[in-house]
Design a protein around this nucleic acid. Structure first.
Length: 424
RNA sequence: GGAGAGGUGGCCGAGUGGUCGAAGGCGCUUGCCUGCUAAGCAAGUGUGGAGGUAUUCCUCCACCGAGGGUUCGAAUCCCUCCCUCUCCGCCA
Protein backbone atom coordinates (compact mmCIF):
# COMPACT_ATOMS: atom_id res chain seq x y z
CA UNK A 1 0.00 0.00 0.00
CA UNK A 2 1.23 3.45 -0.81
CA UNK A 3 1.16 6.48 1.45
CA UNK A 4 -2.06 8.40 0.82
CA UNK A 5 -0.02 11.59 1.07
CA UNK A 6 1.69 10.64 -2.16
CA UNK A 7 -1.67 10.89 -3.90
CA UNK A 8 -2.35 14.27 -2.34
CA UNK A 9 1.01 15.80 -2.99
CA UNK A 10 2.22 14.16 -6.17
CA UNK A 11 -0.47 12.26 -8.07
CA UNK A 12 1.52 12.60 -11.30
CA UNK A 13 4.35 10.59 -9.82
CA UNK A 14 1.96 7.80 -8.93
CA UNK A 15 0.42 7.89 -12.39
CA UNK A 16 3.81 7.67 -14.06
CA UNK A 17 4.73 4.73 -11.85
CA UNK A 18 1.54 2.93 -12.76
CA UNK A 19 2.03 3.67 -16.43
CA UNK A 20 5.49 2.14 -16.33
CA UNK A 21 3.90 -1.00 -14.93
CA UNK A 22 1.28 -1.15 -17.68
CA UNK A 23 -1.31 -0.33 -15.06
CA UNK A 24 -4.41 1.78 -15.52
CA UNK A 25 -3.96 5.29 -14.06
CA UNK A 26 -7.62 6.23 -13.66
CA UNK A 27 -7.54 4.76 -10.19
CA UNK A 28 -5.29 7.63 -9.07
CA UNK A 29 -7.88 10.32 -9.80
CA UNK A 30 -10.55 8.20 -8.15
CA UNK A 31 -8.45 7.89 -5.02
CA UNK A 32 -7.60 11.58 -4.93
CA UNK A 33 -11.23 12.66 -5.11
CA UNK A 34 -12.32 10.10 -2.52
CA UNK A 35 -9.57 11.31 -0.21
CA UNK A 36 -10.75 14.91 -0.51
CA UNK A 37 -14.25 13.78 0.36
CA UNK A 38 -13.07 11.77 3.34
CA UNK A 39 -11.22 14.71 4.82
CA UNK A 40 -14.09 17.07 4.26
CA UNK A 41 -16.58 14.75 5.94
CA UNK A 42 -14.13 13.98 8.74
CA UNK A 43 -13.83 17.63 9.53
CA UNK A 44 -17.56 18.12 9.63
CA UNK A 45 -17.97 15.16 11.94
CA UNK A 46 -15.17 16.27 14.23
CA UNK A 47 -16.72 19.67 14.66
CA UNK A 48 -20.12 18.20 15.41
CA UNK A 49 -18.63 15.73 17.86
CA UNK A 50 -16.82 18.48 19.68
CA UNK A 51 -20.16 20.25 19.90
CA UNK A 52 -21.89 17.18 21.26
CA UNK A 53 -19.12 16.42 23.74
CA UNK A 54 -19.49 19.92 25.04
CA UNK A 55 -23.25 19.60 25.41
CA UNK A 56 -22.92 16.27 27.18
CA UNK A 57 -20.50 17.77 29.60
CA UNK A 58 -23.00 20.50 30.37
CA UNK A 59 -25.72 17.90 30.89
CA UNK A 60 -23.60 16.31 33.55
CA UNK A 61 -22.99 19.67 35.17
CA UNK A 62 -26.65 20.62 35.09
CA UNK A 63 -27.60 17.30 36.65
CA UNK A 64 -25.00 17.75 39.33
CA UNK A 65 -26.61 21.08 40.11
CA UNK A 66 -29.99 19.46 40.17
CA UNK A 67 -31.20 21.63 37.30
CA UNK A 68 -33.35 19.04 35.54
CA UNK A 69 -34.97 21.53 33.21
CA UNK A 70 -31.64 22.73 31.85
CA UNK A 71 -30.46 19.13 31.50
CA UNK A 72 -33.50 18.09 29.52
CA UNK A 73 -33.12 20.98 27.16
CA UNK A 74 -29.42 20.26 26.58
CA UNK A 75 -30.13 16.60 25.99
CA UNK A 76 -32.64 17.44 23.31
CA UNK A 77 -30.13 19.70 21.65
CA UNK A 78 -27.43 17.06 21.82
CA UNK A 79 -29.75 14.50 20.33
CA UNK A 80 -30.23 16.70 17.29
CA UNK A 81 -26.48 17.02 16.84
CA UNK A 82 -26.16 13.27 17.21
CA UNK A 83 -28.58 12.67 14.41
CA UNK A 84 -26.59 14.90 12.09
CA UNK A 85 -23.43 13.02 13.05
CA UNK A 86 -25.06 9.68 12.28
CA UNK A 87 -26.08 10.84 8.82
CA UNK A 88 -22.64 12.13 7.91
CA UNK A 89 -20.96 9.11 9.45
CA UNK A 90 -22.90 6.82 7.22
CA UNK A 91 -21.73 8.71 4.16
CA UNK A 92 -18.16 8.81 5.45
CA UNK A 93 -18.09 5.06 6.04
CA UNK A 94 -19.12 4.40 2.48
CA UNK A 95 -16.52 6.72 1.02
CA UNK A 96 -13.83 5.37 3.30
CA UNK A 97 -14.59 1.79 2.41
CA UNK A 98 -14.30 2.59 -1.27
CA UNK A 99 -11.03 4.42 -0.71
CA UNK A 100 -9.49 1.68 1.43
CA UNK A 101 -10.40 -0.92 -1.13
CA UNK A 102 -8.90 1.01 -4.01
CA UNK A 103 -5.69 1.61 -2.08
CA UNK A 104 -5.20 -2.15 -1.78
CA UNK A 105 -5.32 -2.49 -5.55
CA UNK A 106 -2.52 -0.01 -6.30
CA UNK A 107 0.84 -1.67 -6.95
CA UNK A 108 4.12 -0.44 -5.53
CA UNK A 109 6.14 2.35 -7.12
CA UNK A 110 9.31 1.11 -8.84
CA UNK A 111 12.62 2.28 -7.44
CA UNK A 112 14.57 4.80 -9.50
CA UNK A 113 17.25 2.22 -10.25
CA UNK A 114 14.76 -0.04 -12.05
CA UNK A 115 14.86 0.02 -15.85
CA UNK A 116 11.63 1.21 -17.44
CA UNK A 117 10.08 -1.14 -19.95
CA UNK A 118 6.80 -2.83 -20.87
CA UNK A 119 7.85 -6.50 -20.64
CA UNK A 120 10.61 -9.00 -19.96
CA UNK A 121 12.49 -8.06 -23.13
CA UNK A 122 13.54 -4.93 -21.26
CA UNK A 123 15.00 -6.79 -18.30
CA UNK A 124 18.71 -6.27 -17.80
CA UNK A 125 21.16 -9.10 -17.31
CA UNK A 126 23.43 -8.09 -14.46
CA UNK A 127 25.92 -10.95 -14.36
CA UNK A 128 26.50 -14.58 -15.24
CA UNK A 129 28.22 -17.29 -13.26
CA UNK A 130 29.43 -20.64 -14.58
CA UNK A 131 29.43 -22.10 -18.04
CA UNK A 132 26.58 -24.21 -19.34
CA UNK A 133 27.98 -27.70 -19.79
CA UNK A 134 28.74 -28.96 -23.30
CA UNK A 135 27.28 -32.44 -23.58
CA UNK A 136 28.96 -35.00 -25.83
CA UNK A 137 25.66 -36.88 -25.86
CA UNK A 138 22.04 -35.83 -26.12
CA UNK A 139 21.01 -34.76 -22.59
CA UNK A 140 17.58 -35.85 -21.53
CA UNK A 141 14.97 -33.58 -20.04
CA UNK A 142 14.11 -34.51 -16.48
CA UNK A 143 10.59 -35.49 -17.49
CA UNK A 144 12.10 -38.32 -19.54
CA UNK A 145 15.09 -39.17 -17.38
CA UNK A 146 13.22 -39.15 -14.06
CA UNK A 147 10.52 -41.65 -15.04
CA UNK A 148 13.08 -43.83 -16.87
CA UNK A 149 15.06 -44.13 -13.66
CA UNK A 150 11.83 -44.95 -11.85
CA UNK A 151 12.41 -42.01 -9.52
CA UNK A 152 9.84 -39.56 -10.86
CA UNK A 153 6.21 -40.46 -11.50
CA UNK A 154 3.95 -38.00 -13.27
CA UNK A 155 1.28 -40.53 -14.19
CA UNK A 156 0.49 -41.62 -10.68
CA UNK A 157 0.71 -38.02 -9.48
CA UNK A 158 -2.01 -37.21 -12.02
CA UNK A 159 -4.02 -40.17 -10.76
CA UNK A 160 -3.85 -38.80 -7.23
CA UNK A 161 -4.20 -35.10 -7.81
CA UNK A 162 -4.48 -34.16 -11.47
CA UNK A 163 -2.07 -32.19 -13.58
CA UNK A 164 0.94 -30.25 -12.32
CA UNK A 165 1.81 -32.63 -9.53
CA UNK A 166 4.75 -35.00 -9.15
CA UNK A 167 5.50 -38.12 -7.16
CA UNK A 168 9.13 -38.96 -6.44
CA UNK A 169 10.74 -42.11 -5.04
CA UNK A 170 13.86 -43.09 -3.13
CA UNK A 171 16.93 -41.16 -4.31
CA UNK A 172 14.93 -38.27 -5.76
CA UNK A 173 12.69 -38.00 -2.73
CA UNK A 174 15.81 -37.99 -0.60
CA UNK A 175 17.47 -35.46 -2.88
CA UNK A 176 14.55 -33.10 -2.33
CA UNK A 177 14.99 -33.46 1.42
CA UNK A 178 18.76 -33.06 1.18
CA UNK A 179 18.37 -29.82 -0.73
CA UNK A 180 16.07 -28.42 1.95
CA UNK A 181 18.60 -29.17 4.67
CA UNK A 182 21.54 -27.96 2.62
CA UNK A 183 19.91 -24.59 1.95
CA UNK A 184 18.63 -24.06 5.49
CA UNK A 185 22.05 -24.91 6.91
CA UNK A 186 23.78 -22.50 4.55
CA UNK A 187 21.48 -19.62 5.41
CA UNK A 188 21.33 -20.19 9.13
CA UNK A 189 24.96 -21.12 9.77
CA UNK A 190 26.72 -18.88 7.29
CA UNK A 191 24.34 -16.07 6.40
CA UNK A 192 22.88 -15.37 9.81
CA UNK A 193 19.22 -16.17 9.24
CA UNK A 194 16.89 -17.37 11.95
CA UNK A 195 15.08 -20.51 10.91
CA UNK A 196 11.33 -20.24 11.37
CA UNK A 197 8.72 -22.94 11.21
CA UNK A 198 5.41 -21.48 10.13
CA UNK A 199 1.77 -22.37 9.46
CA UNK A 200 0.92 -23.25 5.88
CA UNK A 201 -2.66 -22.12 6.27
CA UNK A 202 -3.15 -18.43 6.87
CA UNK A 203 -6.01 -16.01 7.30
CA UNK A 204 -7.34 -13.70 4.65
CA UNK A 205 -5.89 -10.73 6.53
CA UNK A 206 -2.43 -12.33 6.45
CA UNK A 207 -2.55 -12.82 2.69
CA UNK A 208 -3.60 -9.20 2.33
CA UNK A 209 -0.52 -7.93 4.11
CA UNK A 210 1.89 -9.39 1.59
CA UNK A 211 -0.29 -8.39 -1.36
CA UNK A 212 -1.62 -11.75 -2.56
CA UNK A 213 -5.08 -10.44 -1.69
CA UNK A 214 -7.41 -8.92 -2.59
CA UNK A 215 -6.28 -8.63 -6.18
CA UNK A 216 -4.99 -12.12 -6.86
CA UNK A 217 -7.43 -14.32 -4.99
CA UNK A 218 -7.91 -16.59 -8.02
CA UNK A 219 -4.22 -17.53 -7.77
CA UNK A 220 -4.55 -18.94 -4.27
CA UNK A 221 -5.99 -22.15 -2.86
CA UNK A 222 -8.71 -21.32 -0.40
CA UNK A 223 -10.22 -23.49 2.30
CA UNK A 224 -13.82 -22.32 2.04
CA UNK A 225 -15.04 -23.91 5.23
CA UNK A 226 -12.72 -21.74 7.32
CA UNK A 227 -11.73 -18.95 4.93
CA UNK A 228 -8.08 -19.93 5.21
CA UNK A 229 -5.55 -19.89 2.40
CA UNK A 230 -2.72 -22.26 1.55
CA UNK A 231 0.43 -20.18 1.39
CA UNK A 232 1.84 -19.64 -2.10
CA UNK A 233 5.22 -18.85 -0.51
CA UNK A 234 6.70 -18.67 2.98
CA UNK A 235 7.09 -14.95 2.34
CA UNK A 236 3.48 -14.62 3.48
CA UNK A 237 3.85 -15.89 7.06
CA UNK A 238 7.42 -14.63 7.44
CA UNK A 239 6.63 -11.04 6.50
CA UNK A 240 3.34 -11.01 8.40
CA UNK A 241 5.00 -12.49 11.48
CA UNK A 242 5.61 -9.03 12.96
CA UNK A 243 2.40 -7.39 11.78
CA UNK A 244 1.07 -4.70 14.12
CA UNK A 245 4.30 -4.64 16.05
CA UNK A 246 6.74 -1.87 16.81
CA UNK A 247 10.35 -3.02 16.57
CA UNK A 248 13.40 -1.38 18.07
CA UNK A 249 15.89 0.04 15.60
CA UNK A 250 18.67 -2.01 17.13
CA UNK A 251 16.76 -5.22 16.38
CA UNK A 252 16.99 -4.51 12.67
CA UNK A 253 17.62 -6.08 10.31
CA UNK A 254 15.68 -9.24 11.14
CA UNK A 255 16.62 -12.13 8.88
CA UNK A 256 14.17 -15.00 8.63
CA UNK A 257 14.35 -18.18 6.62
CA UNK A 258 11.80 -20.95 6.36
CA UNK A 259 11.30 -24.08 4.40
CA UNK A 260 7.70 -24.63 3.32
CA UNK A 261 5.76 -26.19 0.52
CA UNK A 262 4.14 -23.56 -1.70
CA UNK A 263 0.70 -23.94 -3.18
CA UNK A 264 -0.32 -22.12 -6.32
CA UNK A 265 -3.32 -22.56 -8.57
CA UNK A 266 -1.37 -21.32 -11.60
CA UNK A 267 -4.60 -19.97 -13.03
CA UNK A 268 -3.92 -18.45 -16.39
CA UNK A 269 -0.72 -20.36 -17.03
CA UNK A 270 -2.35 -23.02 -19.21
CA UNK A 271 0.06 -24.34 -21.79
CA UNK A 272 3.06 -22.90 -19.94
CA UNK A 273 5.75 -25.33 -18.77
CA UNK A 274 3.31 -28.21 -19.05
CA UNK A 275 5.95 -30.90 -18.99
CA UNK A 276 7.91 -32.03 -15.98
CA UNK A 277 7.96 -30.49 -12.54
CA UNK A 278 8.92 -26.96 -13.49
CA UNK A 279 5.52 -25.43 -12.81
CA UNK A 280 3.59 -27.24 -10.11
CA UNK A 281 0.59 -26.62 -7.91
CA UNK A 282 2.77 -27.68 -4.99
CA UNK A 283 6.49 -27.17 -4.68
CA UNK A 284 9.07 -26.84 -1.95
CA UNK A 285 10.99 -23.66 -1.34
CA UNK A 286 13.39 -22.19 1.17
CA UNK A 287 12.51 -18.54 1.55
CA UNK A 288 14.56 -15.60 2.78
CA UNK A 289 12.93 -12.56 4.35
CA UNK A 290 14.39 -9.37 5.78
CA UNK A 291 12.78 -6.69 7.89
CA UNK A 292 15.16 -3.78 7.64
CA UNK A 293 15.33 -0.01 7.76
CA UNK A 294 14.61 2.30 4.80
CA UNK A 295 18.12 3.74 4.76
CA UNK A 296 19.76 0.47 3.87
CA UNK A 297 17.12 -1.72 2.28
CA UNK A 298 18.34 -1.42 -1.30
CA UNK A 299 21.87 -2.27 -0.20
CA UNK A 300 20.43 -5.19 1.74
CA UNK A 301 18.70 -6.43 -1.39
CA UNK A 302 22.13 -6.87 -3.00
CA UNK A 303 23.19 -8.95 0.00
CA UNK A 304 20.04 -11.04 -0.15
CA UNK A 305 20.66 -11.77 -3.82
CA UNK A 306 24.20 -12.88 -2.99
CA UNK A 307 22.83 -15.24 -0.38
CA UNK A 308 20.54 -16.85 -2.94
CA UNK A 309 23.33 -16.98 -5.51
CA UNK A 310 25.57 -18.75 -3.04
CA UNK A 311 23.23 -21.74 -3.13
CA UNK A 312 23.73 -22.14 -6.86
CA UNK A 313 27.47 -21.55 -6.62
CA UNK A 314 27.89 -24.25 -4.02
CA UNK A 315 25.89 -26.60 -6.17
CA UNK A 316 27.95 -25.51 -9.17
CA UNK A 317 24.94 -24.73 -11.29
CA UNK A 318 25.39 -22.10 -14.01
CA UNK A 319 23.09 -19.13 -13.59
CA UNK A 320 22.58 -15.52 -14.38
CA UNK A 321 21.14 -12.56 -12.48
CA UNK A 322 18.52 -10.42 -14.14
CA UNK A 323 17.21 -7.05 -13.03
CA UNK A 324 13.52 -6.90 -13.86
CA UNK A 325 12.11 -3.88 -15.64
CA UNK A 326 9.08 -1.96 -14.41
CA UNK A 327 6.63 -3.86 -16.59
CA UNK A 328 7.79 -7.30 -15.42
CA UNK A 329 7.83 -6.78 -11.67
CA UNK A 330 5.40 -8.24 -9.19
CA UNK A 331 2.63 -6.22 -7.55
CA UNK A 332 4.38 -5.29 -4.32
CA UNK A 333 7.95 -4.97 -5.53
CA UNK A 334 9.92 -1.76 -5.76
CA UNK A 335 12.89 -3.62 -7.24
CA UNK A 336 13.40 -7.25 -8.21
CA UNK A 337 16.29 -9.45 -9.26
CA UNK A 338 15.60 -12.87 -10.71
CA UNK A 339 18.10 -15.69 -10.53
CA UNK A 340 17.90 -17.95 -13.54
CA UNK A 341 19.53 -21.37 -13.61
CA UNK A 342 20.66 -23.10 -16.78
CA UNK A 343 18.32 -25.90 -17.87
CA UNK A 344 19.47 -28.13 -20.74
CA UNK A 345 15.85 -29.18 -21.45
CA UNK A 346 14.91 -25.55 -22.12
CA UNK A 347 18.30 -24.73 -23.61
CA UNK A 348 17.87 -21.53 -21.63
CA UNK A 349 18.12 -19.92 -18.24
CA UNK A 350 14.99 -20.50 -16.17
CA UNK A 351 13.85 -18.59 -13.09
CA UNK A 352 14.81 -20.31 -9.86
CA UNK A 353 14.66 -17.39 -7.47
CA UNK A 354 13.07 -13.97 -7.31
CA UNK A 355 14.44 -11.44 -4.85
CA UNK A 356 12.56 -8.24 -4.17
CA UNK A 357 12.62 -5.16 -2.05
CA UNK A 358 9.02 -4.22 -1.36
CA UNK A 359 10.16 -1.12 0.53
CA UNK A 360 7.36 0.00 2.90
CA UNK A 361 4.59 -1.43 0.72
CA UNK A 362 3.93 -4.53 2.82
CA UNK A 363 4.90 -2.84 6.08
CA UNK A 364 2.07 -0.36 5.56
CA UNK A 365 -0.41 -3.12 4.87
CA UNK A 366 0.78 -5.02 7.91
CA UNK A 367 1.47 -2.02 10.08
CA UNK A 368 5.02 -3.17 10.81
CA UNK A 369 6.92 -0.26 12.28
CA UNK A 370 10.11 0.46 14.17
CA UNK A 371 11.18 3.17 16.56
CA UNK A 372 14.11 5.16 15.29
CA UNK A 373 16.85 6.46 17.56
CA UNK A 374 15.19 9.89 17.52
CA UNK A 375 12.04 8.27 18.90
CA UNK A 376 9.99 8.62 15.73
CA UNK A 377 8.04 5.72 14.32
CA UNK A 378 8.54 4.61 10.76
CA UNK A 379 7.61 1.65 8.62
CA UNK A 380 10.24 -1.02 8.10
CA UNK A 381 11.22 -2.17 4.65
CA UNK A 382 10.62 -5.80 3.73
CA UNK A 383 12.74 -7.91 1.42
CA UNK A 384 11.98 -11.40 0.24
CA UNK A 385 13.71 -13.90 -1.97
CA UNK A 386 13.77 -17.57 -2.79
CA UNK A 387 16.83 -19.17 -1.42
CA UNK A 388 15.99 -21.06 -3.61
CA UNK A 389 13.14 -23.04 -5.19
CA UNK A 390 13.81 -26.68 -4.29
CA UNK A 391 11.96 -28.45 -7.10
CA UNK A 392 13.63 -26.47 -9.82
CA UNK A 393 17.00 -26.99 -8.16
CA UNK A 394 16.41 -30.73 -8.20
CA UNK A 395 15.52 -30.51 -11.86
CA UNK A 396 18.63 -28.44 -12.57
CA UNK A 397 20.84 -30.98 -10.83
CA UNK A 398 19.24 -33.92 -12.58
CA UNK A 399 19.60 -32.33 -16.00
CA UNK A 400 22.99 -30.64 -15.62
CA UNK A 401 24.70 -33.51 -13.81
CA UNK A 402 23.38 -36.40 -15.91
CA UNK A 403 25.78 -38.95 -17.38
CA UNK A 404 25.46 -40.75 -20.70
CA UNK A 405 24.37 -43.88 -18.81
CA UNK A 406 21.48 -42.00 -17.25
CA UNK A 407 22.98 -41.85 -13.79
CA UNK A 408 23.37 -38.51 -12.07
CA UNK A 409 26.43 -37.13 -10.32
CA UNK A 410 25.76 -35.51 -6.98
CA UNK A 411 27.28 -32.03 -6.53
CA UNK A 412 30.08 -32.12 -3.97
CA UNK A 413 28.34 -29.76 -1.57
CA UNK A 414 25.38 -32.09 -1.45
CA UNK A 415 27.20 -35.36 -1.00
CA UNK A 416 27.32 -35.13 2.82
CA UNK A 417 23.57 -34.57 2.82
CA UNK A 418 22.83 -37.43 0.46
CA UNK A 419 25.53 -39.83 1.56
CA UNK A 420 26.49 -40.79 -1.98
CA UNK A 421 28.31 -39.46 -5.02
CA UNK A 422 25.99 -40.66 -7.70
CA UNK A 423 22.28 -41.39 -8.21
CA UNK A 424 20.88 -43.94 -8.20
C1' G B 1 -17.54 -30.35 19.93
C1' G B 2 -19.39 -29.29 25.50
C1' A B 3 -18.71 -26.22 30.14
C1' G B 4 -16.36 -22.10 32.37
C1' A B 5 -12.91 -17.70 32.83
C1' G B 6 -10.87 -13.69 30.46
C1' G B 7 -9.06 -9.88 26.63
C1' U B 8 -7.48 -2.15 29.48
C1' G B 9 -1.20 1.92 27.78
C1' G B 10 5.98 -1.21 26.84
C1' C B 11 4.56 -4.67 31.11
C1' C B 12 1.49 -5.63 35.65
C1' G B 13 -3.07 -3.94 37.19
C1' A B 14 -7.55 -0.60 38.96
C1' G B 15 -11.78 1.08 36.91
C1' U B 16 -19.71 -1.24 36.10
C1' G B 17 -22.91 5.16 32.72
C1' G B 18 -20.47 11.61 32.96
C1' U B 19 -14.50 16.28 33.68
C1' C B 20 -11.35 8.52 32.14
C1' G B 21 -6.73 8.66 27.36
C1' A B 22 -7.83 6.11 31.54
C1' A B 23 -5.71 5.39 39.28
C1' G B 24 -1.50 2.83 41.19
C1' G B 25 2.98 0.09 40.39
C1' C B 26 7.04 -1.51 37.25
C1' G B 27 9.93 -0.08 33.19
C1' C B 28 11.90 3.91 30.26
C1' U B 29 13.65 9.30 29.48
C1' U B 30 15.39 13.86 31.57
C1' G B 31 16.94 16.87 35.71
C1' C B 32 18.60 17.13 40.95
C1' C B 33 21.36 14.73 44.73
C1' U B 34 25.11 11.15 46.31
C1' G B 35 33.12 11.38 44.93
C1' C B 36 31.28 5.56 40.89
C1' U B 37 26.96 2.11 41.27
C1' A B 38 22.52 1.35 43.90
C1' A B 39 18.95 3.99 46.58
C1' G B 40 16.35 8.82 46.93
C1' C B 41 13.74 13.39 45.00
C1' A B 42 11.20 15.96 40.78
C1' A B 43 9.18 16.06 36.01
C1' G B 44 7.99 13.58 31.65
C1' U B 45 6.57 9.10 29.17
C1' G B 46 0.75 5.89 23.73
C1' U B 47 -0.99 5.82 18.60
C1' G B 48 -3.59 7.63 14.41
C1' G B 49 -6.24 11.57 11.88
C1' A B 50 -7.87 16.70 10.71
C1' G B 51 -6.90 21.79 11.29
C1' G B 52 -4.26 26.29 12.98
C1' U B 53 0.88 30.46 7.21
C1' A B 54 3.60 25.34 11.57
C1' U B 55 8.35 17.67 12.20
C1' U B 56 9.87 20.16 18.07
C1' C B 57 3.88 24.84 19.87
C1' C B 58 -1.68 24.85 20.07
C1' U B 59 -6.83 23.07 19.12
C1' C B 60 -10.26 19.34 17.86
C1' C B 61 -11.57 14.12 16.86
C1' A B 62 -10.85 8.87 17.40
C1' C B 63 -8.79 4.58 19.81
C1' C B 64 -9.59 0.25 26.66
C1' G B 65 -9.72 -7.46 21.35
C1' A B 66 -13.08 -6.39 16.48
C1' G B 67 -17.80 -4.88 14.68
C1' G B 68 -22.73 -3.30 15.70
C1' G B 69 -26.59 -1.45 19.26
C1' U B 70 -28.81 1.38 23.61
C1' U B 71 -27.93 6.55 25.53
C1' C B 72 -27.48 13.56 25.55
C1' G B 73 -23.04 10.73 27.02
C1' A B 74 -20.03 3.83 26.89
C1' A B 75 -13.63 1.05 28.91
C1' U B 76 -18.21 0.55 31.78
C1' C B 77 -24.95 -1.87 29.65
C1' C B 78 -26.81 -5.25 25.28
C1' C B 79 -25.77 -8.31 20.67
C1' U B 80 -22.43 -10.76 17.15
C1' C B 81 -17.61 -12.27 16.04
C1' C B 82 -12.28 -13.17 16.97
C1' C B 83 -8.51 -14.62 20.24
C1' U B 84 -6.32 -16.64 24.93
C1' C B 85 -6.63 -19.80 29.22
C1' U B 86 -8.85 -24.05 32.34
C1' C B 87 -11.66 -28.65 32.56
C1' C B 88 -14.23 -32.58 29.68
C1' G B 89 -14.63 -35.17 24.91
C1' C B 90 -11.96 -36.43 20.39
C1' C B 91 -7.26 -36.87 18.13
C1' A B 92 -1.40 -37.17 14.99
Amino acid sequence: MLDIRLFRENPERVKNALKSRNHDTGIVDEIVSLDVKVRQLTNEINQLRAQRNNLSKRVAQAKARGDEQEATQLMAEAKGVGERIDAIEKELDEVKEKLDKLMLYVPNIPHESVPVGPDETHNVEVRRWGEPRKFDFEPKPHWDLGPQLGLMDFDRAAKLSGSRFTVMYSAFARLERALINFMLDLHTKEHGYTEVWVPHLVKRSTMTITGQLPKFEEEAYRIDSDDLFLIPTAEVPLVALRANEILEEKQLPLLYTAYTPCYRREAGSYGKDVRGMIRQHQFDKVELVWLTSPERSFEDLETLVRHAEEVLRRLELPYRVVLLCTGDMGFGAAKTYDLEVWLPSYNAYKEISSCSNDADFQARRGNIRYRRKDGKLDYVHTLNGSGVAIGRTLVAIVENYQRPDGRIDVPKALQPYLGCEVIP
